[in-house]
Design a protein around this nucleic acid. Structure first.
Length: 694
RNA sequence: AGCGGGAUGGGAUAGCCAGGAGAUUCCGCCGGGCUCAUAACCCGGAGAUCGGUGGUUCAAAUCCACCUCCCGCUACCA
């Protein structure tokens, strides 16, 4: 790896995070793949030798569980999704040089080599750990399907990750009070021997690595905190049948996050073997001085900036030069949800008949790569109509049509200096974008050039010149054709299909995919290939309405469902999900006897004084007059109310609650309040302090 | 409280890492032009205390400190 500007003399590898083979792809997923594809194509435009590789992630517990539910074996289950992905990506012009999967021979072999090497270097050791066990089936319970209490923050958590609490990764056996989410039975702990990767030894290396790492800022910053907190050794085996067997250990398979990133290498190797190492040498890329660029979603930053470089380092491979971590996508402002069908599916987009390049453009340029990006059909239409149709398409069409009508192709003239300079500036912007890891700027470079084109043709008015001064008109249009050619090459990474059409219109030989930046300023052919035609079609308002009408019911339904089951894991039953809803708690089924209710001594009180408790964010100490006496009560309302306005306010107090101490302050009673905003319960009329509430 | 991401004309965004011209672009608005072009294009205009307060500097949207608010996960919500 180097830190020289691209292009370098070394082979580059661009990878995309492996799609997990257990569900349909939606356009949110596509953001990463389009981003990677655009970037890889852009590198090639610079003349950088590049392999763009990926593969399906086939292993792991969710696949086992889902396969079981469908009554098929995990392999065929995962393979089915794998094949679907393999077919889907090309439909969006995401054109991997190799697309493998983690269960294939290449990956299996390489993974075993990696682990062997890690063992040989002394970075793997065995340790007995507690594993959750389903006593009924006498089977180990996968971490993902164990629920319990996080040992760090005490909140409810999943076995492999404190998903609702502190977000920490949990090692097997760490979780407290484990319960199987599959059977609902309490799980036992059993001692099992497992393999650990001594990541804790590598914090110094990883810190330095992060200092060197290029790409998006979130990928550099997020893992720092982790290292500072102290890295734990990483359990790299699981009690499972499905996966890559751990050599010499019958019961163990490797944890998916070991073999998954190795697929990047395996896939590169497959590519290399297919085209020949004289064309692309995977060993030079991975063990020599390759430029490794990982394009991922921001949810898997840790794996790519801690575990993966740690593995690479230990086995003596190159470290990644860059990690580009994309933000998520939202749909009309809310998150995508696969399980609730709140999504625009990849296939659905295609079924609507839109060209893949329109979505590619939207995904790649609608905001910074690490920024979350919202999708709506309206925004989609706006950008297509305004930028692709109005600026880019319109410029190309008006220029080429004019050329075609008057000169039947490119008029004879030399490229003017003004336009040459403008095109050169666009090339510079393109190169800068690549070195900035910004696919957005890549799009801007082309659009800016097209906008220049529109200005240029407008200001020079060749339609007026063509009769009076045909030479001058020829000059203008000759320049415009060159700009069109530049657009074809520069826009190819974002819109490969449209760029190719344009290339054909211009009468160029070969494919625009093979054209590099140095072709941009070469003279275009005198004769056009095909008659100029509009490159982009607008999206009508009615069409947007129609699309929204299809989408909205689903979004609404999903949002409604969410309100009733937010925070619930996808696999949980309806019953379980309803129970812990924060938005709309279900009414309790269990009935209270009147006697029990009578036990509650509720009184009207009047707030006398309010003092914030120092060092506490929420707690305040209140003096409340409840008729017979004045009580000191502690309540968590500091941020929710204007404390100065509270004295004099009437409230309802639970008078016979046991005393407790909060933040060192005694609380003798409880203030009743509604909801998250602690809306204080008060009286409608003029009840006096001390009146009993019943 | 913690972590991450944000706060830039009516809306949406860029610029911030590597501090310096009139703060970018798109949509919308107002006025004009053009008629080669897909009611597209071009020109002009209104509209921003660049979240706040301090600091560093000749110079701050940009760097530093503190703070406020918003989003996501979560807390001391008796």
């Amino acid at each position: 790896m180097s830190h020289e500007d691209y292009p370098t003399d070394d082979p580059a590898v661009v990878t995309c995070g492996l799609p997990y083979a257990n569900g349909d792809l939606h356009i949110g997923h596509l953001r990463t793949y389009v981003g990677g594809d655009v970037y890889a194509r852009a590198l090639e435009k610079l003349g950088q030798q590049t392999a763009f590789v990926c593969g399906s992630d086939m292993h792991g517990t969710p696949i086992v569980v889902n396969a079981e539910q469908e009554g098929v074996d995990p392999e065929s289950f995962a393979l089915e999704w794998h094949e679907q992905y393999e077919e889907t990506f090309p439909k969006f012009a995401v054109d991997f040089d190799n697309y493998g999967h983690t269960h294939d021979e290449t990956n299996t072999e390489l993974t075993l080599e990696f682990v062997e090497r890690m063992e040989a270097e002394g970075y793997v050791y065995e340790k007995e750990i507690k594993v959750a066990w389903d006593p009924e089936d006498d089977q180990p319970l996968p971490d993902r399907y164990v629920e319990g209490t996080c040992p760090y923050c005490g909140s409810k958590a999943r076995g492999d990750e404190c998903d609702e609490g502190c977000g920490r990764h949990l090692e097997p056996g760490e979780i407290e009070d484990p319960v199987s989410t599959i059977s609902g039975n309490p799980a036992e702990y059993r001692e099992r021997p497992h393999k650990f990767f001594r990541v804790s030894d590598l914090s110094e290396y990883l810190t330095e690595f992060l200092d060197r790492l290029e790409g998006t800022a979130n990928a550099r910053n997020q893992p720092r905190q982790w290292i500072e907190e102290g890295l734990e050794d990483w359990c790299i085996t699981r009690d499972l049948d499905w996966g890559i067997d751990y050599a010499g250990e019958e019961d163990l398979v490797l944890y998916v996050w070991v073999d998954a990133p190795i697929e990047y290498v395996a896939s590169t190797k497959q590519y290399s073997e297919r085209v020949g190492s004289d064309v692309y040498d995977w060993e030079e890329a991975w063990k020599g001085d390759g430029e490794i660029v990982h394009v991922i979603g921001r949810d898997i930053i840790q794996h790519h900036t801690i575990f993966w470089p740690a593995m690479l380092h230990v086995v003596g491979y190159d470290e990644p030069r860059s990690v580009m971590a994309s933000g998520f996508m939202t749909l009309n402002g809310e998150g995508f949800s696969t399980s609730r069908n709140r999504a625009v599916w990849a296939q659905e987009y295609l079924d609507e008949g839109f060209h893949e390049d329109l979505l590619r453009y939207y995904l790649a340029t609608n905001g910074g790569f690490q920024q979350d990006v919202d999708f709506s059909w309206q925004k989609f239409a706006d950008r297509v109509n305004g930028e692709l149709v109005g600026d880019l398409g319109n410029f190309l069409y008006r220029s080429l049509l004019f050329a075609h009508r008057n000169w039947e192709g490119t008029p004879e003239a030399d490229l003017s200096d003004e336009v040459r300079a403008e095109i050169e500036a666009a090339i510079d912007a393109f190169e800068a974008a690549v070195n900035d890891y910004s696919v957005r700027k890549l799009g801007d470079a082309t659009l800016d050039l097209a906008r220049f084109g529109n200005r240029y043709i407008q200001n020079n008015e060749p339609w007026k010149l063509v009769d009076e001064a045909p030479e001058a008109a020829a000059q203008v249009i000759r320049d415009c054709v060159q700009v069109a050619k530049a657009v074809a090459v520069l826009f190819e990474p974002l819109a490969p299909g449209k760029a190719e059409s344009l290339w054909e219109q211009l009468g160029e030989d070969g494919s625009v995919h093979d054209a590099e930046l140095d072709a941009v300023l070469e003279a275009p052919p005198a004769a056009f290939g095909t008659e100029p035609a509009e490159l982009f079609e607008g999206v009508e308002d009615e069409r947007v309405e129609e699309l929204n009408e299809k989408l909205e019911p689903r979004v609404q339904e999903a949002t409604g469902e969410d309100a009733a089951s937010e925070g619930a894991a996808e696999t949980e039953s309806e019953e379980a999900t309803a129970a812990d809803s924060p938005d709309m708690e279900p009414i309790a089924d269990e009935r209270l006897s009147f006697e029990d209710f009578q036990d509650l001594d509720l009184r009207v009180g009047r707030i006398e004084t309010v003092d914030p408790i120092e060092d506490s964010d929420d707690l305040v100490r209140l003096e409340i007059d409840i008729g017979a006496e004045t009580r000191q009560v502690v309540a968590g309302i500091k941020q929710l109310h204007d404390l100065d306005e509270l004295p004099g306010e009437k409230v309802v107090v639970v008078a016979n609650l046991e005393k407790t101490e909060l933040f060192g302050v005694e609380s003798n009673g409880m203030l009743l309040a509604a909801g998250e905003q602690a809306d204080l319960l008060t009286t409608h009329g003029d009840a006096d302090p001390g009146e009993k509430v019943r």
